[in-house]
Nucleic acid binder design. Sequence first.
DNA 1: TTGTATGCGTTATCAC
DNA 2: GTGATAACGCATACAA
Lengths: 343, 343
Amino acid sequence: MRNRVNAYDVAKLAGVSQSTVSRVLNNYSHVKKSTREKVLVAIKELGFTPDEIARSLASKKTHTIGLIVGDISNPFYAETAHYILREAREYDYDVIIVDTDTDDSNFDRSIQTLIGKRVDGIIIASVRKTNQKVSELIQRDFPLIFYNRKIDDDGQANFVVIDNELGAKMAVNHLIQLNHQRIAYISGPCTYSTFNDRFLGYKSALEENGINYDESLVYQDELSYEKVLEFSLKLMRDQDRPTSFFASTDHIALAVMDAAAQNGFHIPYNISIIGFDDIDIASSPYIGLSTISQQKKKMASLVLKELISIIDNKSDELIQITLEPELLIRKTTGINVQIRSNG
Amino acid sequence: MRNRVNAYDVAKLAGVSQSTVSRVLNNYSHVKKSTREKVLVAIKELGFTPDEIARSLASKKTHTIGLIVGDISNPFYAETAHYILREAREYDYDVIIVDTDTDDSNFDRSIQTLIGKRVDGIIIASVRKTNQKVSELIQRDFPLIFYNRKIDDDGQANFVVIDNELGAKMAVNHLIQLNHQRIAYISGPCTYSTFNDRFLGYKSALEENGINYDESLVYQDELSYEKVLEFSLKLMRDQDRPTSFFASTDHIALAVMDAAAQNGFHIPYNISIIGFDDIDIASSPYIGLSTISQQKKKMASLVLKELISIIDNKSDELIQITLEPELLIRKTTGINVQIRSNG
DNA sequence: TTGTATGCGTTATCAC
DNA sequence: GTGATAACGCATACAA
């Protein structure tokens, strides 16, 4: 590759100094119109593109943010990333996406590399409730915001979330109103705040409706397709099987739907299923998954806007925004007509 | 944020020069064991993280690559990105993902910013067959590789693709073997090489089987869910409706499935549908979409490996790899039992 | 309004 | 083996 053109080359051609080129590049006000134009012509002529690396080193701003997701192939994260990338484009920020593959050691390493790359700020869309590295960053006042996540000492942390507990309650209440009593709950581990909050919502909805909590109906482990499928199938084949499932993510609701299909169940006649997230495919008529909407688009645009305002130091108030979830009733939830043999 | 610790601070604490710190950081061989350890201790003590920006400026390597996708919320791109991110982690590369939102001006801008950011190389997973900026980069020998794409003057370009024409032929032949004659084709515009090649495959499969090409069964336009849904519904309500659909991406096959569902058709009894890509959800038993596999995982790991070898200049041969597609028969394609009123 | 000089935090090339 | 010192390509304070 041939040597790059730099600001000195432009300066020489335009007959000015390198600092003037810099001033033109940065739209400084006190540049004579004629010299500005000379410079612009030279830039065009040489096809000059400023070196953002050098720029970053000098200005201590990279115009890049880091986005940490659990697994970008998971539609929830993918759709989130899409909206965040779109917003970032508007604000002229680039995004380094780090996919932790839901692995804790990857997470720590990700933070490390993002800090090394001197990103201006970080959006965390996936992390356990407690994490040493993250706490350190918060302590250091590093521009950081959580997307649909909290950590334990969130007194100091910025976040944009929806009310996950309320959302879960809405889902479970919906099932209860449809006459369901035995409601399974499929979720990831409570070490993640979202799952924790949704679990709280699940339990309190049951309690408020006088339904006993039955541990055997609850899965709270690794969210792999296979494991969830297996657990769901086992439950469905049970004598006293649940008549409905609340899956704490749409992604995993699909696994439950698979289990139902494999078991010859017709949704929603034999079994009702409700998810959480409202990923794009949930709204497809072919799937028609009832779910709780996360308002991804709104959350994404908010989280980016707020992060940038933090970076720009427009305010040093804490950003803590909680949005309302929304119940979306589609075709996977229906009235329970199961005849139960209560002894 | 408090001032960063730099290599000079470390040097002072360790009682050595900054260059020695640099040598330790870069694992140089000729450093005395005892001094190396002194430095390492100092690094740990101060919590020093080298500034990758400064490093990049000095070394002219950013250890960052750019990935250009059309729309990261599209599962095909999301899954691709996932595998690429995973591989990149192995090679210690970071990835700036740019989402063009399938907009040409965004694409050009993306190239510009990636070049500005001095990425070491670029993977392009979405671009039209001809693009000025891309051609320029290729001319300049910039490390660049196409993922499942080609451009017109690909004599000079690196790529990893599957044989899209063959894949399309396999899909259509499968339908023909199931006794389908009227086969609709839903696709994006031919200005993209993948769509172009798949269209060629579609046509030649028809031709080889003595079936006339019927333009009215073909959609080649913007791949929005709504538009495809509308077109498919219209076709399905036609007197002489197609008995099967070949959708050039799984993502859009779902829209066709929706249309079928909305029309009260049962898949595959009333209508057969086959996609292309094999996105994760296609294999879900609940969907069970017959499709052509792209070997995303293999392609992704190949494309990254090859790009890095290009960056490292291990060879200046052209990388042009074509993988074999694979037909995956699931439950959305079946024998055509339609009774046709042939005049 | 413009130029000069310095610094940003490294790597790399010399010396010793 | 190790330490000065010059790049790297810009932004910016200061001077003019």
